[in-house]
Write a protein that binds this DNA or RNA. Structure first.
Lengths: 188, 188
DNA sequence: GTCTATAACGAGATAGAC
DNA sequence: GTCTATCTCGTTATAGAC
């Protein structure tokens, strides 16, 4: 991994754990093993780094969604795989990076906001497709639009991750996630 | 309102809007109309202020839940009144203060954490009671435990507020909240 | 209880040598 | 591309007068 990627990886972890306003260039420098000033050669300003983080994180999301799309699985399994992404974050004691940034959005460089919004839209779009797919396969019984259910899923997983990480109650997250999926796949 | 309460009120708004690491004593001083140094007479340190904020915010929650309990209404109406609290925050462009603090919990004074956890527990307990009440009134048809449904409700409302505030999509919040309640009160 | 003044530190960022 | 050295500003917090 070259230095630029190493910086990005460390910075992403710091945002997910401490928030954008909760870490400094000194923290990155320490973990990457170079001096603060050298960071500015790769990312001149902190908000430039923030924008790069959003681009990188969105690409990671696309990779994950494509990986799930490629599974030889039905829609219900895809939903479980999607929820497992959040479960993995919880295990690593990290928030979704964009969920974290969303909480701080009023303090962010406005240039970061478009990709932040786009990230959530991408999640809702993908979930809406999977829900529609499950509907056409007669796997799901959904009162209300697929898009509204998609937003419930995204919101509930973000909120459950937020709360479970702070309370340390991982079992509560599991209960929430499995009941969420159960309530979509139907009771029978 | 005396100065101490005024400080608390301004600080609470700042945490809800910008996060605990996103505002300073200078911001409070400017809005309260006194000097930075005077703030330390009322709250010696920032984490002392943070703890006072959690005590005050928890008391506000108790007031709201008691107000809803006192309504001459059935469980479904109480759930809608609970969701309306979050809707009010969104309208004021504020996060739930404790949801905000939860995202930053790794950077907080550990003394703040017990009341933070207690806040979420209080929400889940109350929601669990209302859901059980609705069940006994034959208003709700719930697969899974009332506590798990309570956690879905809390998580989804926290997440929907987080996302809708950042994206500016208030209609998405409304769709999420109403479908959440609809899916509990049943389709008939 | 509020003020001025200031301490002590950490932040993001820059200059210029190597 | 990384370093040392430094700048400027904002942060929490304190001392002591009024």
């Amino acid at each position: 991994m070259d230095t630029k990627e190493h910086i990005l990886s460390v910075a992403q972890k710091l945002v997910q754990q401490r928030g954008y306003n909760g870490f400094s260039y000194a923290d990155i420098a320490e973990q990457v093993g170079i001096r603060k000033a050298s960071l500015h050669h790769h990312y001149a300003t902190k908000s430039e780094l923030g924008i790069a983080l959003l681009v990188s994180y969105s690409a990671q999301l696309d990779d994950e969604l494509q990986r799930i799309n490629a599974l030889p699985a039905k829609a219900d399994v895809k939903l479980a795989a999607y929820a497992a992404i959040f479960r993995g974050s919880l295990k690593a004691e990290r928030m979704c990076m964009v969920g974290m940034l969303a909480s701080e959005w009023l303090t962010l460089d406005p240039a970061m906001l478009p990709s932040l919004k786009r990230f959530f839209e991408r999640n809702v779009e993908w979930l809406t497709e999977v829900l529609a797919e499950g509907k056409s396969q007669n796997l799901f019984s959904l009162p209300g639009s697929a898009a509204d259910h998609a937003r419930i899923l995204l919101s509930a997983l973000q909120g459950a991750l937020l709360i479970a990480r702070a309370t340390g109650d991982h079992a509560a997250f599991d209960g929430t996630a499995s009941l969420l999926i159960k309530s979509i796949t139907g009771k029978g």
